[in-house]
Design a protein around this nucleic acid. Structure first.
Length: 548
DNA sequence: TGAAGTTTAA
């Protein structure tokens, strides 16, 4: 009756079914509970391949409160009525890709090295195709060991001709960068260069952006200077990639210095100026932004709708709607018409500033201009309606999007789910994430964050765990904000042991803990007299500090 | 993601 299953256990997650009582034990990073299958929300599915064992429930110390019983029952009733199967039947054409599933099942076992992944995959008998590679890489883009092991395995397949798939190589470069495996990433690029014909500007853009994202400015700039060693032209497009990645990571000063030092060698285009303009606008440096407009004109470029929209956004960030409108008037006088992007910025900022009535006038003005809304515009409108507490209207709008041929995206779902959680309409929130599971939109941390928060607030530990397990299964990793929320939320729920686990994981990942979070945890441990854990946390902080 | 806009939250 011992717990089982090496690989899954190593990942500190397992689900065990007792065939007699049909109870399911869920264990996730020290969280543990025993549930009846009917308690599982409809969107939560245990993989069929998981082994079955009888096990006692000594670890279970969680209780689902009565409110969530009603939630679970309602989801369940729909399930009993065939709700889920109806949804599935109605889907236009669900592509069942057996090969993707077969490989995913192997990759999910979370091996300790790419070589082990490669070995395990040798047992698979699937045919390598471009679509298979893309699907797997997309699915495991948070897990470089699985992705890289899979890629090496593909490379060994006799039918695989690596020159056919430069984009897949670029994806692999990006995954290594995203997971901060920078040395491996550079080695891999070298390897691509040796094979020949695989390294392009789009490859190097991934490298530059990932270095910038990790605030390794020097490496980003060096990558640009050394482009020609890899056979990539050091032209204006390459310069713009570097400038943009520096600006997007909020280092516009560094971008300006690069720009000035390169100006004599590479002639900038209008985009170069707009990139810098955007950098200054985001940094709320309006004087510098205006200076860029002037330089742009001196250089012989006329500011375009993107330039004006950037300035409008800068004023909107400062809630200076008067000046935003003045720019709007100025661009019109220049014969430059605002686009749906311009209107989205204005509407969204008005909503954020609680000027709801004015915000809701924007769609009217926009249609007068003959400008058609898109998904992002709808998302902002939904956000504004939610901010005003008009959830029913927001939901109606969401339904209308389908009808109007403007497909909702993951942000649409996340916005509504978040609002439902804020207004304690948890049943609607869970209904929506169920619906999302049946749509092409993929949830991310931002989708789950408000749900996890709600579970903490209501002390719904079982539901919290369903969600965490679900995220784990989908390879959605926690971000700093979510770690902080979980550590604090579990602390307040007297789940100190679990709170410590998330705290530990966060610190080991190199995420700095806020003093507030640390103190809350330490105070909790002190109050409960759990001195061992308190000492461990202290040690952890010392280690983290010395590493920095 | 990538010359402009949309989701969490301290």
């Amino acid at each position: 009756m011992a717990p089982f299953c090496g690989a899954l256990l190593a990942a500190s997650f397992y689900g065990i079914k007792d065939p007699k009582s049909r109870m399911i034990l869920l264990k996730f990073r020290g969280l543990c509970c025993l549930v009846e299958p009917h308690e599982l929300p409809a969107w939560f599915k245990l993989p069929a391949s998981r082994p079955m064992t009888v096990i006692s429930d000594s670890d279970d110390d969680f209780v689902i409160p009565s409110e969530s019983q009603s939630l679970v029952t309602s989801v369940n009733t729909r399930k009993a009525n065939g709700f889920m199967s109806d949804v599935r039947k109605d889907l236009p054409c669900e592509i069942v890709d057996d090969d993707v599933d077969e490989i995913s099942n192997v990759l999910k076992k979370r091996f300790s090295s790419p070589e082990l992944v490669c070995l395990a995959l040798n047992a698979c008998s699937v045919k390598v195709s471009k679509s298979l590679i893309d699907k797997i890489l997309r699915r495991f883009n948070n897990n470089w060991i699985s992705a890289f092991g899979f890629f090496k395995w593909v490379d060994n397949q006799p039918e695989f001709n690596n020159k056919q798939f430069p984009k897949s190589y670029d994806m692999m470069v990006d995954i290594l960068g995203k997971c901060k495996k920078f040395d491996l990433m550079l080695q891999f690029v070298e390897e691509m260069n040796r094979i020949g014909g695989l390294v392009s500007l789009s490859t190097m853009a991934k490298v530059i952006r990932r270095f910038s994202g990790a605030r390794r400015w020097h490496d980003a700039i060096k990558t640009f200077y050394d482009l020609e060693l890899l056979g990539v032209k050091k032209d204006c497009s390459a310069l713009n990639v570097l400038l943009d990645s520096l600006c997007k990571e909020r280092n516009v000063k560094c971008a300006r210095d690069v720009f000035l030092s390169m100006r004599s060698q590479i002639s900038p285009n209008a985009s170069s100026f707009n990139i810098l303009l955007h950098g200054w606008c985001k940094a709320r440096k309006l004087d510098e932004a205006k200076q860029v407009i002037k330089e742009m004109r001196d250089f012989g470029f006329t500011p375009c709708v993107i330039s004006y929209t950037n300035l409008i956004e800068a004023y909107c960030i400062q809630k200076d709607f008067e000046n935003a409108n003045a720019i709007l008037a100025e661009m019109r006088s220049q014969g430059c018409l605002p686009t749906v992007v311009t209107y989205t910025i204005i509407m969204h900022s008005l909503g954020k500033a609680n000027k709801i009535q004015e915000a809701l006038q924007v769609p009217v003005k926009m249609s007068r201009d003959g400008c058609t809304p898109d998904t992002s515009f709808y998302n902002s409108l939904i956000y504004v309606l939610c901010k005003a507490g008009r959830l029913a209207d927001a939901n109606r709008l969401f339904e209308e999007m389908h009808r109007d041929g403007i497909p909702p995206n993951a942000i649409t779902y996340s916005t509504l789910i978040s609002a439902f959680c804020d207004y304690s309409q948890e049943e609607d929130a869970f209904k929506l994430i169920t619906k999302m599971g049946e749509s092409p939109c993929k949830p991310d941390v931002k989708t789950y964050h408000p749900l996890l928060k709600l579970c903490c607030k209501r002390k719904w530990t079982k539901l919290l765990m369903y969600l965490l397990v679900d995220m784990f299964e989908k390879d959605i990793s926690l971000d700093p904000g979510t770690y902080t929320m979980l550590v604090q939320g579990l602390c307040r729920n007297d789940k100190l042991q679990q709170s410590c686990l998330f705290f530990e994981e966060m610190v080991l990942k190199g995420i700095a803990a806020r003093p507030r979070t640390l103190n809350l945890l330490l105070e909790g441990l002190e109050k409960k007299g759990i001195y061992g854990a308190k000492e461990k946390i202290h040690q952890l902080m010392l280690q983290a500090r010395s590493r920095r």
